[in-house]
Amino acid sequence: MRRAYLPMILLSLLLSCHQQARNTDIPIPDESVFNLTSSWHTEEGKEIKLKDLKGKVLVVVMIYTTCKVACPRLVADMKGIHDKVPAALQNKVQYVLVSIDPAHDTPDKLKSFAQSREMDSEEWTFLQGSTESVREFANVLAVKYKEISPMDFSHSNIISVFDPQGNLLYQQEGLGIDNAGTVASITAAAQ
């Protein structure tokens, strides 16, 4: 009699593993950032929607490549966060840098920026969108930015953490601050 249940148990386990591997099939909650329909270009020139990033914990910051003051610090903060997330969880985390200067930060420029900062591996994604999509995403993140002069912006310094379904979990505001809360939220969401 026990043998008759074995195939059903194996099938159940297989389906469970298959569903876990396909966590991108889980419905998107109403408050998810993945409900935004704008299109973006990666540093590789690939066109994506934010929902294409579903399934991983997202660590997101908005920068621009010609920034000389805040953005270098934000990039360093992102790298510091990356370095503190346990290695065993890195495959469950995506670090996303969104340009607030889509007119100048082309995919090629973003790729060059990523390479020069040793951020060109798979866990790093750089995005360029339209002015409207950048504005929409900034509003979701509560990031304020304003063009002061061509290629120069004033902007908020916020790093946001989203769970694999696109729900905002945590925000770190400031430059060079203690990132223990950010790392803890990433670690908890990635486990």
Rank of each mutant, 00 (worst) to 15 (best):
M119C: 04
R117Y: 11
T65W: 11
K51L: 09
Q90E: 14
S154L: 13
D83R: 01
I81A: 06
T182Q: 05
E122Y: 03
T182F: 05
K51M: 05
S112D: 13
F34Y: 09
D178P: 10
G166L: 05
L58E: 00
Q20L: 14
S154W: 09
N157R: 04
I28P: 02
P27R: 07
K46V: 12
Q115Y: 03
D108P: 00
L14C: 10
I159C: 08
L89F: 00
W124K: 06
E132Y: 11
D105I: 12
D101H: 08
V59K: 05
S133K: 01
L127M: 03
D83S: 15
Q128V: 12
S185V: 04
A138F: 07
Y145F: 11
I159F: 01
P29H: 08
K92A: 10
S133C: 12
M151F: 02
F126Y: 05
N23W: 06
H104E: 08
V93G: 06
P7G: 15
V33K: 08
V98T: 10
T66I: 04
S38D: 15
H82C: 01
T187K: 05
Y95M: 15
H82P: 12
K92P: 03
D152M: 15
M119S: 13
V60Q: 03
S160A: 15
S39F: 14
A114H: 11
Q20D: 10
V143N: 10
V98S: 04
M62Y: 01
K68Q: 14
V60C: 08
I177S: 14
N23K: 12
I28K: 03
G55F: 07
L74S: 09
T187F: 00
A88P: 00
E173G: 08
G181V: 09
L141T: 02
N23S: 03
M78T: 04
D52V: 00
L168Y: 01
F34G: 01
M151C: 08
I28A: 09
D77Y: 00
E147I: 13
C71H: 02
Q171G: 03
D77V: 04
I63Q: 13
D30R: 15
I159T: 08
L10F: 01
R3Y: 10
G176I: 00
V61W: 02
A4T: 10
S130W: 06
S99F: 03
L74F: 02
A184H: 06
I177F: 10
P86G: 08
N91V: 06
N35P: 06
C17A: 12
L36V: 06
E47I: 14
K46F: 05
D178H: 07
I63H: 13
L11P: 05
N157F: 00
K79C: 05
I26H: 05
V140A: 11
N157G: 04
F113T: 11
S154P: 01
P72W: 07
Q171E: 09
S160F: 02
V93D: 01
P27D: 04
D120K: 03
A114T: 04
L53T: 07
C17W: 13
S38E: 09
D101K: 11
A184T: 08
D120R: 02
Q191R: 11
P72H: 11
